[in-house]
Simulated assay, not measured.
Amino acid sequence: MLINQNTVKAFETSLDLIMSRVQDLKHSIGSFILKLEHEHQMLNWPSVLDSFALLSSQINMLNKVLKGDKTPSLRNMVLLPLELSLDRDEDLEKLTEGRVPVFNHDVVPNYLRTKPEPEIESKNQQRKNIAAQITPELAQKQINSLNKITGRLLDHLNTAKEDWETDSSSSRLNMTTDNRADTQSLVGTIALGKGIKQVRQQTQPTPSQAVMQQPRHVDQHIHKPQSTVRTHIRPGSSVHPYNRT
């Protein structure tokens, strides 16, 4: 199959765009896997839905690129290995992020195959045969049964939601957050001082007051009054005035 220069250029441009879309999709899938592994305890359903929505939009963008008018039909092109080697290829390892260090005979059948493995292909064929045996009438019956089950489940969920909202509203209405007696008592205490005992503070006396309050003790040795009677003993007299002899 001969390919002109314009086709080769268009193929290279489309291939770069496809690789960019695939890298974005790969990054989103890796982030989602890390979130499931490390943040599963704090993970909620809206966050999971956001991750699925991002993956879905990126897959749609990739499909638009593959089905675009400017993208050559990849089905019409055949990829053949030009060289196989048992030696380690650093460029190939870097390009494949360490997944394919060597491009040898064991790697080529897995990476360049255009059909799934025989076991997987056999299982897919069995599923297709089972699906082909279902008649349109039986398929419609199964769809109706599934719709009934889904409708009943939705009715139960809506009933439980209404009951929960009713119980919550009634509990909020019956809930009292104040006590009138306690409120009046608190207002009386703040405004009029009701219920507050007056406690006299015992102040310690100052040093001068302590001296004034001390009892006055008479010191006989210091404050003893002196007698005004004077006695005079004449020298040479040995007679005692009260001697009766």
Rank of each mutant, 00 (worst) to 15 (best):
I3S: 13
N4G: 13
N6G: 13
T7P: 05
T13Y: 12
L15W: 12
V22Q: 13
Q23F: 02
H27A: 11
E37Q: 14
E37T: 00
E39G: 05
L49N: 02
S51T: 01
A53R: 15
L55P: 04
S57F: 13
D69F: 12
P72A: 01
M77V: 14
V78C: 00
L80S: 09
L80Q: 11
D89E: 02
D89A: 04
D89P: 09
E90K: 10
L92D: 02
L95T: 11
V100S: 01
V102F: 08
F103V: 07
N104Y: 07
P109A: 02
N110A: 05
P118F: 01
E121D: 15
N124I: 07
N124R: 07
Q126D: 14
K128Y: 06
A132T: 03
E137S: 03
E137T: 00
L138R: 01
A139Y: 10
N147Y: 01
I149S: 13
T159M: 03
A160H: 05
W164R: 10
E165N: 11
R172V: 06
M175V: 07
D178K: 09
R180V: 11
T183D: 08
Q184S: 08
S185Q: 13
L186E: 10
Q202I: 00
Q209N: 07
V211F: 06
V211Q: 10
H217Q: 13
H223T: 08
K224H: 06
P225E: 05
T231A: 12
I233W: 09
P235V: 07
P235R: 13
